[in-house]
């Protein structure tokens, strides 16, 4: 098991290296950071001075190796746009994104799993059919549109909830949380719903499909034959077996919710990583963009690792030596 974790860590490191390389190459095509630093109306002399100060006048491979060396030593550089160290900026933005992502995923799990079970068990009822229809809508409405729609309804028309920002935040040992103030909670509602709509629909459909699959299995029939109650069959036997893929997907979705909160964050001016990334792209703020991509890659890699370890915990069959690999095949 230790060997397994180690090999996963090695793979993770490799993935990260590739991501850093890709990020670097990609961003050199995005534009010239000097536009952001000096503005469009600058003199050639000033531009040359800044280029040499930042080392932008060196050959690309040299710049890359230099960058790689600094990233490996934990130095992500200074944002061209904000004039502050990138790690400090990212650390400030992480809490907003994490709270939004967790709130969204909590909504998705709390609503998606029960609804999925319900629609699986009562699959012919009109209610279940209607829910499935609605969930299709949830999957297909773009989050940009959903966000604007919610703002229009709840902020402009009914004047109930704030349309932007995070409300008042409280600083807890360097973690700024919006969860301890009323305005923080009020501000969280609309973005969390926006980010959760797709996830709820997907969770529900996933749980339903898995549940239907499991309910057809022999061991369910045997369980029923043993005279177990419906409740025990559904919740103890069927649901538990349904959860393996659900945990995987939920984990990966948490990663993607963090990684792709860009749209939701920009609609609600939610001061998280996604908004930061979007504004950095416009300014060709390469240090921030690269660090962001590295961070998001790290989140995905970590989540994958955790999900694999959760498998071991949920499914006793996999705990046998080499079981995971065997089960995968």
């Amino acid at each position: 098991m230790i060997a397994y974790v180690l090999s996963r860590l090695w793979q993770a490191a490799l993935v990260m290296l590739v991501v850093i390389g890709l990020a670097f190459v990609l961003f050199t095509y995005l534009g010239d950071p000097v536009v952001g630093i000096l503005g469009a109306d600058s003199s050639e002399a000033a531009r040359a001075a800044i280029r040499s100060e930042l080392g932008l006048d060196r050959p690309m491979p040299v710049q890359f190796l230099d960058y790689l060396g600094r990233v490996l030593s934990g130095d992500f550089g200074v944002s061209y746009r904000l004039g502050r160290p990138v790690d400090v900026i990212l650390a400030e933005r992480v809490p907003a994104t994490v709270e939004l992502a967790l709130a969204g995923m909590a909504l998705a799990l709390l609503l998606g799993i029960p609804l999925g079970i319900l629609t699986a068990l009562r699959r012919r009822s009109a209610g279940a059919q209607a829910l499935l229809g609605v969930s299709l809508l949830g999957i297909s409405v773009p989050s940009f549109f959903m966000g604007v729609l919610l703002i229009w309804l709840f902020s402009v028309t009914f004047d109930l909830l704030p349309s932007f920002g995070r409300g008042e935040t409280v600083d807890l040992w360097g973690w700024s949380t919006g969860l301890l103030t009323l305005s923080g909670w009020r501000s969280l509602i609309l973005p969390a719903i926006t980010i959760a709509v797709f996830q709820i629909a997907m969770m529900m459909r996933l749980v339903r499909a898995e549940m239907l699959e499991v309910l057809r299995k022999d061991f369910i029939r045997f369980a029923r034959a043993r005279g177990l109650s419906d409740r025990a069959v559904h919740l103890r036997h069927a649901l538990r077996n349904t959860l393996v893929p659900v945990v995987t997907i939920a984990g990966l979705q948490l990663g993607s919710v963090i990684g792709f909160a860009v749209i939701t964050e920009s609609v609600f001016q939610w001061p998280g990583l996604g908004l930061l990334f979007l504004q950095s792209v416009a300014a060709a703020d390469v240090p921030v963009m690269s660090a962001y991509l590295v961070l998001i890659a790290a989140v995905f890699v970590t989540i994958n690792l955790v999900v694999d370890l959760l498998y071991l915990w949920i499914d006793p069959r996999l705990r046998a030596d080499g079981g995971l690999e065997a089960a995968r095949r």
Partner: peptide, 18 residues
């Protein structure tokens, strides 16, 4: 001073008296 990058949101915030 409240930056709001997204146009519809900025206008909504004005309409909703924020």
């Amino acid at each position: 001073w409240r930056p709001i990058a997204n146009d519809p949101t900025r206008i909504s915030a004005l309409l909703s008296r924020e």
